[in-house]
Design a protein around this nucleic acid. Sequence first.
DNA 1: CTTTCTTTGTTTAGTAACTGAAGAATCCTC
DNA 2: GAGGATTCTTCAGTTACTAAACAAAGAAAG
Lengths: 404, 404
Amino acid sequence: MSGPARVTHASTRAAVLDLIRAAGMISRVGLVNATGLTGGTISTVVRGLIDEGLVAETGHAESTGGKRRVMLQLNHFARYAVGVHLDDARITYVLTNLGGAVVARISRAGSGPDEPAAVVGRMAGEVDALIDSVGVERDRILGLGLVAARPPALAEFGAALERATGLPVVLDNDATAAAIGEHWSGGVGATSTFAALYMGTGLGAGVVLGGTTHRGPSGHAGEIGHTCLDLDGPQCPCGARGCLEVLAGPGAVVARARADRALSRAAGLVGGRTRAAAPVAADFAAISRAARRGNARALALLERSARYVAVAARSLANVLDLEVLVLTGPSFAVAGSVYLPVLRAELEGAVIAHPVSVRLSPSAASASAIGAAAIVLQSELVPRQQALRLPEDLAADEPPVFVR
Amino acid sequence: MSGPARVTHASTRAAVLDLIRAAGMISRVGLVNATGLTGGTISTVVRGLIDEGLVAETGHAESTGGKRRVMLQLNHFARYAVGVHLDDARITYVLTNLGGAVVARISRAGSGPDEPAAVVGRMAGEVDALIDSVGVERDRILGLGLVAARPPALAEFGAALERATGLPVVLDNDATAAAIGEHWSGGVGATSTFAALYMGTGLGAGVVLGGTTHRGPSGHAGEIGHTCLDLDGPQCPCGARGCLEVLAGPGAVVARARADRALSRAAGLVGGRTRAAAPVAADFAAISRAARRGNARALALLERSARYVAVAARSLANVLDLEVLVLTGPSFAVAGSVYLPVLRAELEGAVIAHPVSVRLSPSAASASAIGAAAIVLQSELVPRQQALRLPEDLAADEPPVFVR
DNA sequence: CTTTCTTTGTTTAGTAACTGAAGAATCCTC
DNA sequence: GAGGATTCTTCAGTTACTAAACAAAGAAAG
């Protein structure tokens, strides 16, 4: 090796592209400093990206005494991605550009008890409609991200959708998608150790540590709903006691509100006796609206929930050493104004060493769908380093050992 | 590019060496399968490692119909590392070989109120004694790992020790070191998403996710001691209420025991009125011995603590999707028999999706010192991919933008 | 305007680390 | 001991980088 310690990146092209995305606007010299590569390498890599149409030169920086730097930016409309969020009763479709900005959006009532084949067909049709509505050429669409609360159930569904749409499909869970969406569209800056607290019908978290998404070996990382906040608390379906979800999840908030006759009437709750999932989200929104209108009992319910969520979030931030916490998802979209100050008070004071910055996502309502598209962008443009197979998987390959 | 998607690793040599270490024994063909590299590359890389003396051929596998595979193993005595653990009142020195096995061990009373220069001098002398006691050549020692509960305070101390011993020094906190030690010496297999729960005078956790140590941007990741388990619990010095540490940490256990006159006498507790750190560890050990002797009150105290720790550990396992939890550190070394079954009951039942395997470290008492040495082995032999500079740091470099 | 300096970006020759393919070595089976 | 299977090595070719020289663009000074 000739030069200093050579650091071979997963893919230089991908690393450079991701830096341009993260920086928003950067010069070649900036890339040289950021990557540690030489000017020559950056020059050829950037030329390749410009030739592909992914990157464009967008102006000059002021001179610092010599030639002005040519600024580079992602060509946001060079490629697109489709994101689909399967909620309990609603399917949200978005088409985003390279920057993660929404170009088109459709929302439809959920599948109901139809058979999967019909649902796939209808979804493919709606994806087509989404794409046609803005007239984007098909070959500029990188793929389709499909997210839901429980993605393993989507495996064969995703394969069918892949055949029906002709787009590569990637799957993930909604909270992780939301986190990646925030990361991609720059909502959390480049500060890359953060969590996206997702509240929809349930509570979850997407976790990004040092710029890398942590999904966990079984894909269940971020299960914050079963953080215990009271050893002698109410029984949770998971078997434990005092889980965050039963103490303060949207379901718990809605159940308490329904038990309050006056509040039920004032807020106009739908779900009288039914415990179905759909009304939970609707009723949570109704409670939030009531709180905003000044209903003290609705507000008290939400603030009680917020205190629990805040404490669980503090524990999470402590354990993971988070820099930023983003609140996102439909339920935070409607109730963020109540939760945000409570979480801020709990987390922005000195936690252990450094305070945690708490933010409300600007696109909380469709965060998962946007995140689903962002996952496509990330997987297509910034392919992660391929993991080495574990020696355990290998054991089967190795013949029995016969030493000497 | 000619072949399939080329995955350029941080360093092929390091990746191969780490695979050999992790597998314990593996053939060249096994390495080909594990890395995705071609036989030719593995051949030359392995030859290099053998020439350096780091790896040795140790026998043959049974044939699968053709030539038998030659098995490779780490040459455990090719290199060594020194690990030093600065506890509150005790300094533990270990010399380990490449496999993380302890070759020599010294433990001395702590520094007390001496001035740093004298302490560094004494430590350097004891490191020399450690090395001389087994007659290892100096140039076979890769470096010295120095760990403590609060490593930032060690920065200039480490530099002084580097000058005094002539060995490269790396710093880390004790819990993280313990986790790396477990990982390196194979205590957790290759299952690489786990936490090491460390209990000494306080409570902490070292976190390894997907084979990568997560320290957090400020190095405080794993702060499990301030996980909240009771919103209305006792006040903690950190400002919050109901933290695990005040409810169930070793300090809390010892404080309760001291308040119990009969137990104090029966266990022979040292710290009557003093609240110094040193007696906490000693008294915790005394309480554990009393429990083992059958003292019901001591046992009850520990079991109460264990229940809290178990619930916090479950929350942690849920959020991080852990596969394995290792109990380690001096306090678990003496009280592991009480804590282990309680934690097992809480974690090995279905938590969310998959159960978590809970183990007691076989070398819990000196886990941090061993881990300190393991950090040296890892940093010298498996250098991590250099992190890219964040675009934020870059902003200062970039001149103001003047578009078009 | 010309000269000189600074900074940015490109080109080019050279190199390390890989791949692919052919060949050598070793072991089993018949 | 011939033939096939498998493991390991050798070697020429390719890729992705570096270093260093060069070209281009602006600032500063006369």
